[in-house]
């Protein structure tokens, strides 16, 4: 049976992990490869590396990082963060990345998804989308939530799927960082709107939240950052909990 996936997300700046990594057993908690390997050891099904560097050197450092990760880890990983051109993506593919995620650049120029899927295959292209609930409607936001748009979430994910996105990574900005659970109702609507897998992000605080997102939220994968980094929830313990509740997971 196809397992529901648990995905830790790591923020990367200039090739190093940043923001709230708190592990006692690590030699170097800033080393993305070491941290990724530890998550892989604990049973993470996939990893997402989100680059928040904003420099001209970005393409080179990101490709070097993808190479390091691919050489050392034997589970799939996605790299995202400010990707806007075919050139960026080609460098990551050749470095060994399994998937890339695009966000704002795809909203600004939807044809980017088509070009990426056409050149590298849909399985390589994850559409990341951030959205907020305003007066009963969900709207897409850009640049990590700083810029509002009038684009409706469900319209955008459908269009992105039609253009060739192979997976949707949805973050509810209303739920992100609040730790009160995922945005299950809209997640279920996203999942029913598209026929590609949906990764839920934003809101994980307790193990029950993952149970809810895989049942009520109809998500295919659950992504979280700080609860894993601060060891509030262990991946092995989370998977055992889910398995006991009848959710198919890889143990």
């Amino acid at each position: 049976m196809l397992a529901k996936r648990i995905i830790p997300c790591l923020d990367i700046k200039e090739g190093r992990t940043v923001k709230g990594i708190n592990f006692v057993d690590l030699r170097d908690a800033g080393d993305p490869v070491e941290l990724g390997a530890m998550y892989s050891e604990q049973g993470a099904d996939e990893l997402v590396f989100l680059d928040i560097t904003a420099t001209h050197e970005k393409r080179k450092t990101l490709a070097a990082l993808a190479h390091e990760i691919a050489a050392n880890l034997s589970i799939p990983f996605t790299i995202g963060g400010g990707i806007s051109s075919l050139g960026d993506v080609e460098a990551l593919l050749h470095a060994g990345a399994d998937k890339i995620s695009v966000n704002s650049a795809a909203v600004r120029r939807p044809a980017l998804i088509e070009e990426l899927a056409g050149n590298f295959g849909s399985q390589f292209v994850v559409l990341a989308v951030d959205a907020k609930h305003i007066n009963g409607e969900w709207f897409v936001y850009l640049n990590g939530g700083r810029i509002a748009t009038e684009i409706r979430l469900l319209d955008w994910v459908k269009e992105a799927e039609n253009l060739g996105a192979g997976e949707i990574l949805f973050t509810s900005m209303d739920h992100d960082g609040v730790k009160t659970g995922f945005a299950n109702d809209i997640l279920a609507a996203v999942s029913e709107t598209v026929s590609v897998p949906v990764i839920a992000s934003g809101g994980a605080g307790k193990m029950e939240h993952f149970y809810e997102v895989f049942t009520r939220g109809k998500a295919d994968a659950g992504l979280a950052a700080s609860i894993f980094h601060f060891q509030e929830i262990g991946i092995a313990e989370l998977k055992k909990y889910l398995s006991d509740k009848g959710v198919p997971v890889r143990i």
Partner: peptide
């Protein structure tokens, strides 16, 4: 069900599989 089939799923070995017998019900990507 979603298409593509993406993620970890289990192996059910055929008799005398070249994989050997240890991999029954193991997950692969």
């Amino acid at each position: 069900e979603k298409v593509p089939h993406m993620g970890w799923n289990t192996l059910e070995l055929s008799p005398d599989s070249w994989l050997g017998s240890d991999l029954q019900d193991q997950f692969v990507y």
